[in-house]
């Protein structure tokens, strides 16, 4: 491409952007149907936007959860059929990616010297994948129809308090029963001492994902913030806290599991 052609292309590109901006500012946007307070309230509580699922009225995040599970299971099935049988000792890119994923959570389960880690490593692998891909799911912007007949963009499954509580309680159950099976009643006792753990895990997850959702909603709500910034906020922030939250929950679960399953040496009797 010559210098002249490049200049013409650049001028056309900038002219197109200028025309679009003029068009945007001259035309009236759609009237806002709700205030920012209502938007924030709905983001947090999902009271207005409800969806009918086989006769049960549920939050949109539950639909997201089923969608994420379906997508992940389908992807796993395709990988199992087409990729896993072709695994070699010297891995290719896809094999390396899968092995890294499995190896990362397996290593996390083993790194503190916990016992009976087979179930734990499978659990945190699933939880990590669920949180990571579930958080990224909101970027796809899948639409669902609410009971009121409006369209709603499906959020991350864990941006709903019910989803966060379910994962927190399940993680605590893994820690509790892991301690019971690996270290007996003492192990379960150690897990029970941290009775606030399911609450803290649930609300940490919910708070982290909700804060991201609120910031994104605010950015999209105000017209002046709707250019360029959503690319950074919507994509980069989502990617960032998907990684962070997947790591935090799996790391905490592995850490508390190790504490509850460790067998402490018996103290020598002092005369």
């Amino acid at each position: 491409m010559s210098k002249k052609q490049r200049n013409i292309s650049l001028a056309v590109f900038l002219g197109l952007i200028a025309l679009l901006l003029v068009g945007i500012f001259l035309t009236k946007g759609a009237p806002k149907t709700e205030t920012v307070t209502e938007t924030m309230r709905d983001t947090v509580l999902h009271e207005a936007a409800r969806i009918n699922l086989f006769g049960i009225t549920v939050n949109p995040a539950l639909i997201s959860a089923f969608c994420v599970t379906g997508i992940l299971l389908l992807a796993a099935l395709l990988l199992r059929i087409f990729a896993v049988p072709k695994f070699k000792d010297r891995p290719g890119r896809l094999q390396l990616l899968l092995e890294q994923g499995v190896g990362l959570f397996d290593g996390l389960a083993h790194e503190n010297g916990a016992r009976k880690t087979r179930f734990l490593s499978a659990y945190i692998f699933t939880a990590g994948a669920y949180i990571f891909f579930g958080t990224l799911f909101e970027l796809l912007g899948f639409q669902a129809v609410t009971t009121a007949g409006a369209s709603v963009s499906l959020p991350a499954p864990l941006a709903d308090i019910n989803g966060a509580i379910s994962l927190g309680v399940l993680s605590y159950s893994v820690i509790l029963f892991g301690g019971l099976f690996a270290a007996g009643p003492k192990g379960a006792g150690r897990a029970l001492k941290d009775i606030s753990l399911p609450i803290s895990m649930s609300f940490r997850l919910f708070g982290a994902l909700l804060s991201g959702a609120i910031v994104t909603e605010l950015v999209y709500y105000y017209f002046s913030l709707s250019f360029v910034i959503p690319v950074i906020v919507g994509v980069l922030f989502t990617l960032l806290h998907a990684v962070i939250q997947a790591y935090v929950l799996t790391m905490l679960t592995a850490h508390f599991y190790e504490e509850s399953t460790e067998k402490k040496p018996k103290k020598a009797k002092t005369e």
Binding site: N59, A65, L73, A76, Y130, I161
Partner: peptide, 28 residues
């Protein structure tokens, strides 16, 4: 906070299904 026990159980069911599926299909 719109906490709903039924939805919590539905989320749990969803996760358990995902866990079983991912474990047998991919992880193992």
């Amino acid at each position: 906070l719109n906490i709903d026990l039924q939805q919590i159980l539905l989320h749990m069911l969803n996760f358990v299904l995902l866990f079983g599926g991912l474990y047998f299909i991919l992880y193992k």
